[in-house]
Design a binder for these strands. Structure first.
Lengths: 343, 343
DNA sequence: TTGTATGCGTTATCAG
DNA sequence: CTGATAACGCATACAA
């Protein structure tokens, strides 16, 4: 199969390459007849334009990239769909780019921006502990979606959409305390996670403090580094160790529903029940929190709204209506079967 | 931020573009000194080579693309990791390309092949009801992984790795029957799915027939078209309808664990128990089948082996050691808590 | 070891 | 409405 190019098509049609190009990109300056004819020849010969050449030549394309760190995280599932939908509605095309756990998303973004002549970027997931200098290498607008940023950054340097991880975590912890739980185990991110893991951890701590409860470090467990983070397996493994530690507790607050599911499993295997023996609470409001048995008490993030707002802000940025924006959505405490009052 | 090119770097370094190019691609014909110097300038100026230009110029790159239809399907999670790992081990680079539900994966593949000068392609998921003609437009080796193909295709035209969906489905149905279940509801793909959905359906039918049991069409339910396929929500919705239909049954066999989870939830909501009132069986061996409560009886697919073999075959194809290959792995019937004998 | 010149396949510019 | 031609940014054959 020798490569067939736009020149070959032009020759076959007896027209110039420009005309073929116009037909492909349905440019206005071409008669319907020639266009139809050209398209017919293209179809017959299975000609497919080379994207690299297009991107190289094109000064600007109408495409938005969504970079996801941890694409296996079910939390992003619904969001991706919204992104795709909204972006297409704006007549832009959409690229979903997965970023590996140990890859630098900014590097990936910079490269992609050059390669695809992006108009905008959405960052989803990850910790985003980047230097200002690096961030400034991005020449197109971008929005951080569901990414907690520590306060070191100047709010004028970026845009974001998320929930208040600190506050929502506080809310859940506060709820558990009001249900009579004083010894609440926490399954959180590893301590070097300066992002949402940290924020949720701080919320937990603050709630305990506000209720005059002591913080027992023995009840604070980080996800295992050697297991994929935010997975059921991780929650399961950590909870098994927690149970073996013999430290007393009446509730577990896991900073993700997946972790909570794993925690429940570990509890069941220890011959205990949820919520009779231990209350278990999650975070995120994943589908599984509804379908699990017992259904999980959780903090439900408004993923659809978050995704929609992300795109809205991104396009406002693109159209220079704004220079930056930060939107914080409230999340819902959803009380279900996995927690109970012990008062 | 004006675009900075290889020429700018060359000028800054006082060398030719070739030298810069050599430094970037660590070509042997360059002295360590100049290379270091060039790299230093590149770093300082945050120069990032334009991938489009590279791909355009390069005659062949060492990259493999993995196309996934239904990237949200947790079944692929573990496989992706193996693919990435194995491909990197072979010193090839790896592109994960998501294919939309209503997108033609072959079209995407053809385009990508031209754009990135691919060396090979892995297709994951989807139904693959394509014409031979279209398939032949692919000029690089490819392997279908976990994709059931109907027998219309000539086995010499492609390569594949999967389990025997018919046989494994038969195995599960046979197991349920041996546990005393005669009225087994099936939650399967929509009838126009000519692929694994169909095969698993056929396996179910054959098992019933072999045991001399009548097939009750009222117990065969297809996933909802308007809900994302293979999701808990889909299984939940279908099972609710099944329960409302008043048709009698003692077991549900869902052709995916996610569907089975949804089925369980619907049963719980109806005030019934699993497995006491209804046995529920899944398929795939997803993580959730272990973590769910009750844990799910399922057919566990050897995903890691499948992924490894897929890559092995792909590279054999690339190195022209073979012209095509088909590998079928056995899957395990894993009996857990969600099914019981009613004998 | 290094540099110059050419072309990869397209689109944009400009002249017909 | 159409076509010739010059870029786009890079890698490489070839010359030095």
């Amino acid at each position: 199969m020798e490569r067939i190019t736009i020149i070959d098509i032009a020759k076959m049609c007896g027209v110039g390459v420009t005309t073929v190009s116009r037909a492909i990109n349905n440019h206005p300056d071409i008669s319907e007849d020639t266009k139809a004819m050209v398209m017919k020849v293209i179809k017959e010969n299975h000609y497919v334009p080379n994207n690299s050449a297009r991107n190289l030549k094109r000064s600007a394309s109408k495409t938005i990239a969504v970079l996801i760190k941890g694409i296996t995280n079910p939390f992003f599932n619904h969001m991706i769909k919204v992104f795709e939908q909204e972006i297409q509605r704006k007549k832009y095309s959409f690229i979903l780019q997965r970023v590996d756990e140990n890859q630098d998303e900014i590097e990936v973004a910079i490269e992609l921006e050059k390669e695809k002549r992006l108009k905008g970027i959405v960052f989803l997931g990850g910790y985003f502990s980047h230097s200002k200098e690096k961030l400034s290498q991005l020449t197109v607008p971008f929005v951080l979606s569901t990414i907690g940023m520590t306060s070191e950054f100047d709010l004028n340097d970026y845009s974001s959409v998320s929930v208040d991880d600190f506050k929502e975590s506080y809310k859940m912890t506060d709820y558990l305390i009001n249900q009579g739980h004083a010894k609440i185990a926490l399954i959180t991110a590893s301590m070097d996670d300066a992002s949402i893991g940290k924020l949720r951890y701080e919320g937990y701590k603050k709630a305990l403090e506000d209720h005059g409860l002591a913080i027992n470090e023995q009840l604070i467990w980080a996800m295992k580094e050697d297991i994929e983070s935010y997975t059921m397996e991780n929650g399961y493994t950590v909870t098994k160790e927690l149970l073996e530690s013999q430290e007393e507790f009446t509730a577990i607050f896991a900073i993700s529903d997946n972790l909570a599911v794993g925690a429940c499993k570990a509890i069941f295997e220890a011959g205990k029940r949820v919520p009779e023996d231990y209350s278990v609470a999650g975070f995120d409001g994943l589908d599984i929190s509804f379908y699990y048995n017992p259904s999980l008490t959780t903090i439900r993030q408004p993923v659809v709204e978050i995704a929609e707002e992300t795109i809205k802000i991104l396009f406002d940025l693109i159209h220079k209506k704004i220079t930056h924006a930060h939107k914080v959505f409230p999340a819902d405490l959803v009380v279900r079967e996995s927690t109970k009052s012990i008062l």
